[in-house]
Simulated assay, not measured.
Amino acid sequence: MNIGHDIQMEHAFNTFLNAKSIGDHFRCFHNVTLGQKNGKTPTIGNNVVVSCGASILGDCIIGDNVIIGAGCVSR
């Protein structure tokens, strides 16, 4: 997994990060899951914020300058 610079983990309890790559200036809150589905993992762009309880599973591509709301699920 490639991880960019300036990663911020706000209250990172119960957070699981398993991605192909995470870009620069990534920020996430508690209970976030970036995970595998069918053997594939997500790709996260630059300047991304993932809010509390969000799950991003499988071969998803999250582009640059994205805010993912609390409790969202992408699979």
Rank of each mutant, 00 (worst) to 15 (best):
M1P: 06
M1Y: 03
N2S: 07
N2R: 12
I3Y: 06
G4F: 08
G4M: 11
G4L: 11
H5V: 10
D6L: 13
I7V: 15
Q8N: 05
Q8P: 00
M9E: 01
M9S: 09
M9D: 00
E10N: 12
H11K: 08
A12H: 02
N14T: 00
T15W: 04
T15R: 09
F16I: 14
N18Y: 13
A19K: 06
K20M: 05
S21N: 09
S21C: 08
I22Y: 02
I22M: 05
I22R: 05
I22E: 02
G23D: 01
D24G: 00
D24Q: 05
D24K: 13
H25V: 01
F26R: 08
F26C: 06
R27W: 01
C28W: 02
C28P: 03
C28I: 05
C28E: 02
F29S: 04
H30L: 02
N31S: 07
N31Q: 10
N31T: 00
V32H: 02
L34C: 01
G35T: 05
Q36C: 12
Q36V: 10
Q36R: 12
N38F: 08
G39R: 03
K40T: 00
K40L: 12
T41L: 13
T41W: 04
T43Y: 05
I44C: 04
I44F: 03
G45R: 04
G45C: 03
N46A: 05
N47E: 04
N47I: 02
N47A: 05
V48T: 00
V48I: 03
V49H: 07
V49Y: 03
V50M: 06
S51E: 13
C52Y: 12
G53C: 10
G53P: 07
G53K: 10
A54E: 06
S55R: 14
S55K: 15
I56A: 03
L57T: 01
G58H: 11
D59F: 03
I61K: 14
I61A: 07
I62R: 14
I62L: 14
G63D: 06
G63A: 08
D64Q: 06
N65R: 15
N65G: 12
V66W: 09
V66E: 07
I67R: 13
I67Y: 07
G69V: 08
G69L: 12
G69I: 07
A70P: 09
A70W: 04
G71K: 11
G71P: 08
C72W: 01
C72Q: 08
S74W: 15
R75C: 14
R75G: 13
